[in-house]
Amino acid sequence: MMKIELTGKQSLVTGSTAGIGLAIAQGLAEAGASVTIVGRDQAKVDKALAEIANASGRDDAKGIIADPGTAEGCRTIIEQLPEVDVLVNNLGIYGGVPFFDIDDAAWEEIFQVNVMSGVRLARHYATGMKARGWGRIQFISSESALNIPSEMVHYGVSKAALQGVSRGLAKVLAGTGVTVNSILPGPTRTEGAKAMMADLAAERGVSPEAMETLFLDENRPSTLLRRFAEPEEVASLCVYAASPQASATTGAALRVEGGIVESIA
């Protein structure tokens, strides 16, 4: 049985007070890593830290109050945590908007939050990882990077950009002992997704559970999983990619999207 051991490794997960980010932070803590989470709201950070402690049986996780979607927020994170061994760039925003209604401000915002947050943090932390000869950098992308959704083109484009950054940075760090990968979840039962399904369910007069099935049938008909993933299922792949056992996996787009993408590659 594979035993992932990350004791002694310092990890940072952005967008980690709920959903996939929180599940990743919990998984890393359970594997022994020291975990720092990031959020903009103190109460949400405190609640997430309590959940991590409950899941891992440890109380050493730390929280930073900052907005990584801004240059100032990234500076705050770096000042409070100068070095990490595992960086998971999970922060992301999304929302259905018709293409002709996506104005310049919306394009700029999603690029700053979804792309530049990861670029800024990776640019800093990769330097120390390279010097130490070990590190793990992950960019949480999406199957929407490969199947650009017509209802939120700007989101899909931002996630495709992340994969470009990930592949390019992996080349920059070739042979250093630092791996860089992107992770591609599909529809996942996060708080945000559950809220969206509840709203759609109310409009359609069905239950939220039935709405998930309808959503997949109508928007992701190629799914092989045929259900929403749980955040912990995505986190399991992220924890493996952060592990010493994943040392030969770099420059990859690792899919945990339930087979939605119509490709054998």
Rank of each mutant, 00 (worst) to 15 (best):
residue 75 R to Q: 13
residue 259 G to L: 00
residue 131 A to P: 08
residue 140 I to A: 06
residue 260 I to V: 14
residue 74 C to W: 09
residue 120 R to E: 02
residue 161 A to V: 09
residue 205 G to H: 10
residue 32 G to V: 10
residue 112 Q to W: 13
residue 184 L to T: 12
residue 164 G to T: 11
residue 104 D to S: 13
residue 115 V to P: 01
residue 130 K to V: 02
residue 227 R to G: 08
residue 194 K to G: 03
residue 77 I to Q: 03
residue 76 T to E: 10
residue 229 A to K: 14
residue 237 L to N: 08
residue 148 I to R: 04
residue 236 S to I: 07
residue 219 N to I: 04
residue 263 S to C: 05
residue 197 M to H: 01
residue 26 Q to F: 12
residue 247 S to W: 12
residue 96 G to L: 07
residue 71 A to N: 05
residue 39 G to N: 05
residue 102 I to Y: 15
residue 148 I to V: 14
residue 44 K to F: 12
residue 78 I to T: 12
residue 53 A to P: 06
residue 234 V to L: 05
residue 98 P to H: 14
residue 189 R to N: 06
residue 211 M to R: 01
residue 202 A to T: 14
residue 73 G to D: 03
residue 133 G to Q: 09
residue 223 T to K: 01
residue 249 T to I: 14
residue 48 A to F: 13
residue 103 D to Y: 08
residue 89 N to M: 05
residue 107 W to H: 00
residue 127 T to G: 04
residue 261 V to T: 15
residue 59 D to K: 13
residue 199 D to A: 13
residue 204 R to H: 13
residue 140 I to G: 00
residue 188 T to P: 00
residue 250 T to R: 00
residue 48 A to C: 06
residue 217 D to P: 01
residue 52 I to E: 07
residue 215 F to D: 01
residue 190 T to N: 13
residue 122 A to Y: 10
residue 145 A to H: 01
residue 209 E to K: 12
residue 57 G to S: 06
residue 41 D to L: 03
residue 175 G to E: 09
residue 66 A to I: 04
residue 253 A to L: 04
residue 25 A to V: 03
residue 217 D to W: 12
residue 171 K to A: 11
residue 82 P to A: 09
residue 31 A to R: 01
residue 124 H to A: 02
residue 244 P to R: 03
residue 46 D to L: 11
residue 64 I to N: 02
residue 222 S to G: 12
residue 219 N to E: 05
residue 32 G to E: 07
residue 22 L to D: 10
residue 160 A to M: 08
residue 90 N to P: 00
residue 49 L to C: 05
residue 245 Q to T: 09
residue 220 R to E: 04
residue 196 M to C: 08
residue 102 I to Q: 14
residue 161 A to L: 06
residue 7 T to C: 08
residue 83 E to V: 04
residue 36 T to M: 00
residue 106 A to G: 10
residue 142 S to A: 10
residue 110 I to M: 12
residue 11 S to C: 06
residue 255 R to K: 07
residue 22 L to E: 07
residue 159 K to T: 10
residue 124 H to D: 00
residue 264 I to L: 11
residue 262 E to W: 02
residue 116 M to Y: 15
residue 226 R to G: 03
residue 210 A to Q: 10
residue 53 A to E: 11
residue 145 A to P: 07
residue 172 V to P: 04
residue 77 I to G: 02
residue 205 G to T: 03
